[in-house]
Design a protein around this nucleic acid. Structure first.
Lengths: 119, 119
DNA sequence: GAAATCGTAAACCTTATGGTATACTAAACC
DNA sequence: GGTTTAGTATACCATAAGGTTTACGATTTC
């Protein structure tokens, strides 16, 4: 597995890389919203905002259902979980390293203590 | 706080959105590497690979130090942690699903512990 | 000192991204 | 039925992204 071919992660991380899209996600964390509600706080035209929504849909972060003339959007959890798992994989790596450093320091500390007891 | 202005997160998520850059991070999780080592497994020219490294540096995910003629790169933890914290913020919206994530993480943790005991 | 090794720089190309304006469709509301 | 209201579609633009080639600089190594 030379290169991490995972188009799903590509889409998710890319979706999260824009402040407007993160703002949309934050709004949707409060529950279902229609496109107008999502667009209005963003400082851009309506079509631009709906493009961002579509990017989130491509990444499977947002599901849309049509109700009459309005399109209601809701958040999907799974892709965010995948993204977190990918990063977690390496955080664990570093924490292990920090733990190793910590135990090394503890070792040095107790060595010093026993040495000072002997002398 | 209408829009989530956070250029640091922009850079981090954007950096993570490319498979080659994730591959570099995965390599660096094994310790320091020079640019040639990082580039060789990627199916692209050397200059293209070093551009990816620079994207990771802009996001503060990679620190580089020069030693003679080679440039040694290492991973930085903080930005990944920030990215995870951002997603963590929405955890309560899908707690049921995150229970599954928690148990998976516990599994990874105990696996790692047993691995480090063996070594 | 010549040659190999490790890396940068610049020019260039193609495609993607993020935005606009404008015109249009369809449902709701008097 | 006419008019808001909600949203799509298309054309267009500027810039960023991702890649190449080519040429160059600086350390090792023999």
């Amino acid at each position: 597995m030379v290169v991490d071919r995972s188009p799903r992660l590509d889409l998710v991380f890319h979706a999260l890389a824009h402040p407007a899209r993160r703002a949309i996600i934050r709004q949707l964390s409060g529950g279902e919203r229609n496109l107008s509600e999502l667009a209005s706080p963003l400082r851009m035209t309506f079509p631009a905002a709906t493009k961002h929504v579509r990017v989130l849909e491509r990444a499977n972060l947002v599901r849309r259902r049509v109700a009459g003339r309005q399109h209601l959007c809701r958040l999907r959890a799974a892709p965010l979980r995948d993204a977190m798992l990918w990063t977690e994989q390496f955080r664990r790596n570093w924490e292990a390293r920090f733990e190793a450093l910590d135990s090394l320091l503890e070792e040095m500390k107790s060595e010093e203590k026993s040495r000072s007891r002997r002398h």
